[in-house]
Structure formats: C-alpha cells, structure tokens
Write a protein that binds this DNA or RNA. Structure first.
Lengths: 138, 138
DNA sequence: TCTTGAGCCTGTAGCTACTACAGACCCTAC
DNA sequence: GTAGGGTCTGTAGTAGCTACAGGCTCAAGA
C-alpha cells in the first residue's frame, strides 16, 4: 500500500522511528495544527513525505530548546499565515532567552537553599530536622 | 458565625489572605490530601485553625523550592503514616537537589544555544534566518 | 486461501499543579 | 428586607504530551 522504495512515503510509525518522536505525539501535533494534516491512503492511513519529517524535526528541536508550542507556531508563521520576518524570529528568541535566564536564576536560588539545608543535616535519626525547619519558616 | 477574635478560626478566604495562597488552591490541596479536611460550621463552611495555616505555609514554601506534591507528601509523612526520619528527609532533599542541578545544566545548554543564535541574527528583513537555521539543524 | 500478528485508526482518559468558572447557598450590614 | 459579599459544590480548562480500548487493515507464512 505504501511505496517504501521512494524514501518520502512514510507511515506514522515510520515517521516516529525516523525522528525519534513518540508516535502519539505526532497525532497530537497534527491535532493542534503544528503538523499539517497529511494525505491518506484508501484505508485511511496517514501518508507522510520528507517535508513532514523535516517539519517535525524542526518542531522537536525547538521543543528541546524550550520553545512552547505557541512559540513554535509563531516561528513557523502559523499564527498569521505569513512566514515571520527575521526580526520577529529574533524577538521571539530573545524573549524566550530571557525566560530561560529567569528560570535559571530561580533554580540557582533554590539550589543554594537546598544545598545549604541538606548539608546541615546529619542524616541521623534525631528529632530536629534542619531541612524541615528550613521549609517551615525562620 | 466564626469567631474572629480568637485568631485561630479562619474561613477559607481568611486562610488564603493569611498565606498568600489562591483560595481555590486550598480546596485543591484538601482534595489531594496535603491539607486535612477541616471541621465545618453548621452551614458547611470550612473552619481552619492556626495549625492549618502553619501546614499550608510549609506546603507553599516546599512548592516554591520545587518539591512536587508527592515529595511534600513524603516530607510530611503522609505516604506511610509515620513522620519521616531525618535520613529520609535528607535523601529526598538530595534527590531533589540533583534534579534541580540537572535542570539548571539543561537550561544553561539551552541558554548558550539561544544566545549564540540570537546574536548572529541581524534582525534585518533578510531571507536567511540564523535562528531558524539553527533550529532546523545547521 | 486462510490465518496470525503487527500496525494503524479513532476517541477518550490520564498525568501535574493548579485556576476559573456557574449556580446555589449563606451571612452581614444597612 | 435586601444588597453585596463570601462560601459551597462540581466541573472544565491550561500545557504537552502519553496511554490505553476496541476496531480495522496489511503483509507474510502455512
């Protein structure tokens, strides 16, 4: 049913294996519009092309970089129909970069609190726990 | 109906204001067992005590430190009924600390990729976008 | 040709940690 | 008495997936 000679005709399972994406996630991206609805075989099977694989790989890389699905929609020009300008992409990226940096500094603060309290803890079976005390307030 | 003199008789709204917690979140913590079911007034209104406030503050601080609700259940001894030993608390904290550090290093890698690609971008309205190229897989 | 097992199809439910309603009740102050 | 706030319940929504169930289809082997 599907021509496996021509490299560019893939089932959903093929696409999943080719990109390392979970097979259900592909359907999810289709449902949410990140991936276009692919053509179907007579029996209703999705038929993907190399273009779909490229697009999916783009999405997966962007997700790995922490872009939200909404961000990605913007990066791909799905929000207003037109391909985004370079300036728009840069702006989105910088906003996202700022978010990432904010998250890092949050986590660093958390890290130092956790490290400090954990190190004060003997690990012995004593009544007073410095960790719980630290969380409880002071 | 509720004695507002004695500081330790609080409605849900009072508790929310006193702790800075969203009022709905209190109900959610009750539903999931992090907060015990409080006694009720004749009309069915929840009546909280100072002990509830203390416990809620503990939960909120732990959440701010990034502990999951499951972690917190453990820290409060709600999983096996008994108060956790200091060693258990220390172990949980160190595991969580390791998670936090892993997240930080992930984000730092992401940060450097984003910073590098964004800086290469002129912001001009040119056809080739270094950001998109970077995501697309160089 | 028949069968078997793998793959695909759909819809739906689950996860975390909340948040936000709607519609009904209650309580206080004027 | 009534207006307004507060509270009650249940339910649905958020992001970003993931995991089924129950049914169909396809390819390979006997």
């Amino acid at each position: 049913m599907i021509d496996h000679e021509s490299e560019s005709s893939l089932t959903r399972g093929d696409l999943a294996r080719a990109t390392g994406c979970n097979i259900e996630t592909i359907r999810y991206y289709e449902k949410t519009g990140l991936l276009p609805d692919p053509p179907r075989s007579a029996a209703g099977y999705r038929i993907y092309s190399a273009a779909h694989a490229t697009r999916l790989r783009f999405i997966l890389r962007a997700r790995k970089l922490g872009f939200s699905m909404e961000d990605i929609r913007g990066l791909m020009g799905l929000d207003d129909g037109a391909a985004p300008t370079c300036a728009e992409v840069k702006e989105r990226t910088e906003r996202h970069l700022a978010d990432v940096r904010a998250k890092i500094s949050d986590l660093r603060r958390i890290e130092s609190v956790l490290a400090a309290t954990a190190s004060r803890c003997s690990g012995a079976e004593v009544p007073n726990c410095p960790v719980l005390d630290a969380i409880s307030g002071n």
